[in-house]
């Protein structure tokens, strides 16, 4: 028998298959409207280029990765689809958190077996690896693995399989962080 306290503890999430159908329809909608998929990492890349360009336009001009991202007409790289969709993503999360009662003060979520410090350290390291990886991979989980594969891209499928495959291979070594 499920007691009331247990019910209260259970987080109120969408059924994952229903959530997946909604996400798939969103992806289909963005393909239909924009002809390309979802992206999350692009905004950070553009932010870095914008800051660098502000400090030293000569440097961004000399860097072959950055100079492609600075518009020729002198406008800011931040006036981009990627930036607006990332702003939307943040507010979508915020509203969902409000609707389902998950908004809260700044807090750190971690396994009871590790300290908050360990969790933050791991999050930072993970973020750095993900950041470097997302550029070599031509996109992150949303841009390459999900949207890439959905548009039948071979590279997208490759990133998808490598990302999850590597995750499973190395998960054992990092199990203390989670279980």
């Amino acid at each position: 028998m499920i007691s009331e306290t247990n019910l209260n503890k259970k987080p109120n999430y969408l059924n994952p298959y229903f959530g997946g159908v909604l996400l798939g329809l969103t992806l289909l909608a963005v393909f239909f409207v924009a002809g390309r998929g979802l992206s999350a990492s692009g905004v950070i890349k553009l932010a870095i280029v914008t800051i660098t360009d502000f400090i030293s336009p000569a440097y961004t001009e000399s860097n072959n990765y950055m100079n492609k991202l600075v518009p020729d007409d002198g406008s800011t790289p931040m006036f981009s689809w990627l930036v607006f969709s990332a702003i939307g993503t943040f507010f979508g999360g915020l509203i969902s958190g409000a609707v389902y009662g998950r908004l809260g003060k700044l807090r750190i979520e971690h396994s009871p077996k590790i300290s908050s410090k360990t969790r933050l350290f791991a999050a930072g390291i993970g973020g750095i690896l993900f950041g470097i990886g997302s550029q070599f991979g031509r996109g992150c989980s949303s841009g390459a693995a999900l949207s890439g594969t959905a548009a039948f891209s071979f590279g997208g499928l490759m990133v998808l399989m490598l990302m999850f495959g590597t995750g499973y291979v190395v998960a054992y070594f990092f199990r203390k962080l989670w279980i």
Binding site: A40, A122, A123, G124, I125, G126, G127, I128, L129, F130, G131, I132, G133, S134, Q135, F136, G137, R138, C140, S141, S142, A144, M158, V159, L160, M161, L162, M163, F164, G165, T166, G167, V169, V170, A171, F174, L177, W178
Partner: peptide, 15 residues
């Protein structure tokens, strides 16, 4: 990139 993101995923717990 895929391999690095796999590491990042397990260590960081987010994408």
């Amino acid at each position: 990139g895929g391999v690095l993101m796999g590491f990042g995923f397990v260590i960081g717990g987010f994408c």
